[in-house]
Amino acid sequence: MTSDAAGDEDEEAAERLTDAQRALRAQLLATEHWSLLASRSTTQGEVLTRIAIYLTLVSAGLVLLGILSQATGFSGWFGAAAVGILLVLVLLGFITLVRVYNTATEDLAYVLAMNRLRAAYLDLDPGIGRYLLMGTTEDQAGIDRTYHPFFPRPVSQVLGSSMMIITVVTAVVTGLFTGGLCAWLGLPVAAAVAAGIVAASVVIGLALRNGYVRYRRSLAALERLRND
């Protein structure tokens, strides 16, 4: 059954509801809406805490490297210690990065679910449509309207996101690790710096590509669910 046919059947069923059934349905929809809001808030709070923990660890790691550099004069076992500390930070960064991008997909699911509930509100009372600022459809237009109701898909929304912060920090730490490893292995400073820049650029490129691919796959999965 197509989504259009299913939608027509739902509208016909809504028209046959009694006032008591409409009130009960509105109550159930509102309960589900609050449940989604609570779940979304919990998920966002959890991932922001993870980001804060990682940034704290990065700061502590850099301070520790500064102390070690003063104690060793950048000689002896400082290189091995620096590479080890940066390696740990890189691993923690990628773990945090995976969780942040997973959260972005979950947040998209919450947005689509709440758009669907608003559409159900409209089925119960079409007159409330002018009071709804956020999206009411499960498509790109509905997603854009919910995330930013005033103009669609602003670049600033992506650049200013928590996802971009953790991507840049992880890329910088990866670049420091790569450059430090190259210098520790005896490569010239210029080559170590170039390797670090390349590594950071690769991380940013792959992370952004992964985010875009996940987003498109989520929309494709949504389209398949609608057509089932």
Score class of each variant (00 low, 15 high):
V173L: 03
G79V: 10
T105N: 15
Q70V: 15
L57T: 10
T56V: 11
R118S: 01
P154F: 02
I53M: 15
A81Q: 07
R118W: 04
L133E: 09
I53G: 08
P126C: 06
I128G: 00
T146G: 03
I67F: 14
A141C: 05
R130I: 14
F177Y: 12
Y110C: 10
I53H: 12
D125H: 06
G175D: 01
M114N: 11
V169N: 04
G179W: 09
F74Y: 13
V90C: 02
T56F: 14
P149T: 05
H148T: 14
L68S: 10
G175P: 01
V63P: 07
I165L: 06
N115P: 02
L122T: 10
L159I: 05
A141D: 11
A109N: 12
I165Y: 00
A60K: 15
G129K: 14
R116Q: 11
T72K: 00
T178E: 07
R130H: 15
G61K: 05
L68G: 07
M134A: 14
A120N: 01
G129L: 14
A81V: 06
Y147N: 07
G175Q: 08
F78M: 05
S161W: 03
A141H: 14
V168N: 00
G79A: 11
P154Q: 00
G93A: 02
T56N: 13
Y147C: 12
R145N: 15
D139N: 08
Y121A: 09
R153V: 05
L122H: 07
M163T: 14
P152M: 02
A171F: 06
Y101Q: 09
V158F: 05
L92D: 09
R118V: 03
T137D: 00
L91N: 13
L55K: 08
S69I: 14
W77Q: 11
L62T: 13
V83R: 01
V169Q: 03
E106K: 09
L176S: 05
G160C: 02
F151A: 08
L62C: 08
M114Y: 08
G160A: 01
L87R: 08
G135I: 10
L124G: 07
T72R: 02
S59I: 15
L68Q: 07
D125T: 10
L68C: 09
G127E: 11
R118E: 05
R153I: 09
T72S: 01
M114Q: 10
G93I: 03
M134R: 11
A80T: 13
L57W: 12
S69E: 12
